[in-house]
Amino acid sequence: MNRKTKSLPRVFLAGVVLVVLAYLIACAAMEKGVSVLTSPEKLSQKDKASLLRVAKALRSSFADITEEEEYYIGRSVAATILATYPALNNSRLTRYVNRVGQAVVLYSDRPEIFAGYHFLVLDSNEINAMAAPGGFIFITKGLLRLCRNEDMLAAVLAHEVGHVAAKHGLRSIKKSRLIEAFRLLASEAAQRSGSAELAKLVSTYESILGDITATLIERGYDRKFETEADELAVKFMTRAGYSPTALSDFLAALASSAQASSGKGWFKTHPAPEKRLAKVSAKIKALPQVPAVAKVRTQRFHQYCSRLK
């Protein structure tokens, strides 16, 4: 008994030594892992190969697209939109729209994205607004004309920020195409210029961008994404201090617009405003407190937007 108690501290001492040893090994392991993460240029061929193996096994859905990739996808979608719709040449108005947009972004669920959010007014009478992945948000002159105050403009921008925050653009990529692209990206052959795999990768990438652009301009999102974007708009606006009833006002204005029967722009890509209105109103009713439209905001809105009429 006595011998046993005496030997116990030794056992613990050995345990302590073992723990310290494990700690040192772990430290070294971490150092290696971390250096791989932060300086990709220093990757050894072996490490690169293992990362590729991981890539193949790991990436399978829109959720595996990184922020940087989302930004690059967004750039090309935006460049496609801007090849069809020219930008409005009014830097004062652009600045104002960006301030309203950033106010909503700050109170959104995803205030930080790779290169930040950017807003642009398109020189078109069509009533339309679009959000490319990566935070490129467009609103037409025609839609701005439909807004009567800053809160209504904030409602439209919050709806678009909602699409970006919930990654609806990336979700509209066909899954099979994405898996194909991930597979090609992970193949060594696609890294060589002039290879058949690289050509295939580029054309798969083209189709991916086509999926998103067609959704934004032609097909419209899935109805459930539109409902979600409306709900997020109510949430972000209320947090920012804008009146969420401005979204209802906007939808009512949309319903009574002369363009409603044209089947163009938002009317083509969005569910009927009347249907959205009922859902939005129910959402607002459930809120404990609703900010009101402030006069000072409506005044500054007219300063910037009155000349558009």
């Binding site: 791989v36 993460l37 990709p40 990757l43 690169k48 990362l51 590729l52 991981v54 890539a55 790991l58 990436r59 697209i65 990184t66 922020e67 940087e68 990739e69 690059y72 996808i73 692209a181 990206l185 992970a186 890294q191 990438y205 991916i208």
Partner: peptide, 10 residues
């Protein structure tokens, strides 16, 4: 992100 940092992304 690690994979993309290794230069295998869009």
């Amino acid at each position: 992100q690690e994979v993309a940092l290794a230069g295998k992304g869009f």
